[in-house]
Amino acid sequence: MSLILVESVEKKYEDKVVLNKINLEINQGEIFGLLGPSGAGKTTMIRLLTGQISATAGKITVFDKEVGKLNGTEKKQFGIMMDQFGLYERLSCYDNLKLFADIYGIKKEQIIQTLRAVGLEKAVKTPAMNLSKGMRHRLQLARVFMTNPKILFLDEPTSGLDPATSEEIHRLLLHKKEMGYLIFLTTHNMGEAEKLCDHIALLNEGKIVEYGQPQEICRKYNHQKKIRIRLKNGEELEYENSRDSAAKIEQLFQEQSIETIHSTEPNLETVFMERTGRRFE
């Protein structure tokens, strides 16, 4: 079931085109990744989808309704975490969530449950100003998760975090996906997108240059179609992915000299470079 439908959307600031003819369709229970370098228009896209700003042209439909016409109850089904969204620094983790629990009519017990779910149960009384960056991210996620939204909009949810914390957040997001949430995330971390997303769009200078399942996109750009083998003695070999190579590879298997074996399909970063001629930064 399609929860978000974006049709020929454009966003201009004066004469500058920030987003150009964007088309997307995102279904319930899916993690969708919008990937692009800084300044590509990712945050603008989230702001459009959540009704914070209006599109210059085109149509955005969420819950089968134009986003500008969503009422308060429908907008309460959005969970939005944006990099620039702040916390109440002097208030404890509990009190930061309590405010939103009061606004959404959520019971107090759920605050503690949510803090436990994001691993902040020991920081219940800690003021936000004393939290590490990773803990702040988790508190922001807790604020989003607590309200049980149908759609999560996450702007660079793991930006600047250490691998362990990023891993923890990935685990939480995959769990939410299993629960049927639609998660729309922006990232410039290709590995994260490959790991989490069911579908992605590569955004460059306001245009979508590629769209689809991450593995499918990588396969599509696998022009070399080779097999790369690293032997136990450190030597690296490349073979054509063809019947002719089968005997040679089989022999290496029988000699038990293979350490690793990979296909040479590109990763998303390589695809992006091929499509745009620029690196992800």
Binding site: T50, Q52, K76, F85, G86, L87, I103
Partner: peptide
């Protein structure tokens, strides 16, 4: 300045 107001307004306040 800290964008907490935006979070409130996005929460339908």
């Amino acid at each position: 300045e800290k964008n907490t107001l935006r979070v409130l307004l996005m929460s339908n306040v």
